[in-house]
Design a protein around this nucleic acid. Structure first.
Lengths: 228, 228
DNA sequence: GTGACAATCGTCAACTTGACGATAAAGCCA
DNA sequence: TGGCTTTATCGTCAAGTTGACGATTGTCAC
């Protein structure tokens, strides 16, 4: 049975928070097309590899997120598939985009096929011309991320294992690009059954009154949601 | 440049409401593998065809949803991509699933490559063993459909061009499999800015007080949403 | 100690929601 | 014609939620 052959790739929109900014992982392409251009990390799916496995592999390659416990603190979900016949001048390619949320990872970043990889502020990335249709993929990923914060507990994946309500609020503020009343936010988070679990410990360093530390609770969905 | 060749297909989860039931379009496969088995309609993406175009083409082929105004009353969105290496015993296949909502269409249904096509009640389909991973695709499609009714105006795409609030409520009840208080639902729909637009006309046939007719308003998102 | 700062607790009016009573406008039927 | 049934539509009310913002509480820098 004959069928039209396609190349299938995965591309990653990996978000993290660094230096008080929402950042996305980008690489500088080493080869044509778009050599020297910024792009989302990604690569071909191997002949016997599941799509999600390919995404996880690429993520590990580009970020150094290894086997460790690190990988468990990363959220990875399918974002969408992009298959415009003209998206890659070389051949007919279909790209399955994945969206990842990560807490600040070990600094190292070095791709295999990429010249360099870096965390680029999303605000910058949105005004940068990215390779292929990666600009659109980024926009879609950002919108998905914003929506997910409303009704899931995924904001916590941007934080370290133990975090304060303020840390969590900061995630919302950066991703949504809004300011949130600390008092109302505090109330809502605690009201959301299973969102956070107090550890009993408190922060000690920074200015102001020490804050209680929490870990992520059992819930994955927020009831009620936290609206934009 | 060498790359692993994949077959790329689109599969469709097409929902409609018939005989007071939520139904999904299925075909009986004519060829191996899974010959004689129920499956979702779908097919290969052509070499120079966009994914969404392939989905629209397959939809037209299977349902007879032609060029007419009909096609404009159908909602089609990408659902997700399924690429387990073992999903198709013949070859490495990646399937991009699309989700469609349609009002009751012209009865005719006749695929090109399929033996037969029919509207199967979703309740039945969920307990039927479908070909490939189509069972999972259906489950995912149903969940997406249910979620979409909450915060979009897509329920109206299950209705004819002009519909009553009760028609709309019926869609929610069938898709969510719940009963909804007519009075509160009525209030919420009218409160949702831009959801429906009165035509000024009324129904005349059925029992009970004639109901006002509406068309879909400008909005695509519901503010506030209608919760499950 | 004093002030700055951020966490946390309270208060309140405006709004939303679910439950359900009441009324309206048709057809049906004797 | 006058009930009776049926469904649409309007109202009411208590309970819960939300946003705005005042008040209090630990800590640190000085």
């Amino acid at each position: 049975m004959a069928f039209p052959p396609f190349a299938v790739t995965v591309d990653l929109v990996v978000f993290t928070i660094r230096d008080d900014q929402l950042c996305v992982l980008t690489i500088e392409r080493g080869e044509a097309p778009f050599a020297g251009c910024q792009a989302l990390p990604g690569g071909f799916v191997l002949p016997d590899e599941d799509l999600a496995a390919a995404a996880a592999r690429e993520l590990a390659e580009e970020t150094g997120v290894g086997k460790d416990a690190e990988i468990e603190r990363v959220h990875l979900e399918q974002l969408g598939t992009y298959g415009d016949p003209t998206r890659d001048p070389r051949m007919r390619t279909v790209s399955v985009a994945y969206l990842a949320f990560a807490a600040q990872l070990s600094e190292p970043v070095a791709g295999t096929d990429a010249t360099a990889a870096q965390w680029m502020p999303v605000a910058t990335a949105l005004t940068t011309s990215l390779a292929f249709d990666h600009g659109q993929i980024l926009v879609d990923g950002l919108e998905r991320a914003r929506a997910k914060l409303e009704y899931t507990t995924l904001a916590a994946t941007f934080c370290r294992d133990e975090f304060t309500i303020a840390d969590l609020r900061h995630v919302y503020e950066l991703v949504w690009d809004v300011t949130i009343d600390p008092r109302n936010f505090h109330r809502k988070v605690l009201a959301s059954e299973g969102f956070v679990e107090p550890t009993g410990e408190h922060t000690s360093q920074a200015r102001g009154r020490p804050a209680q530390l929490f870990t992520l609770g059992e819930a994955t969905q927020l009831h009620p949601p936290i609206r934009r």
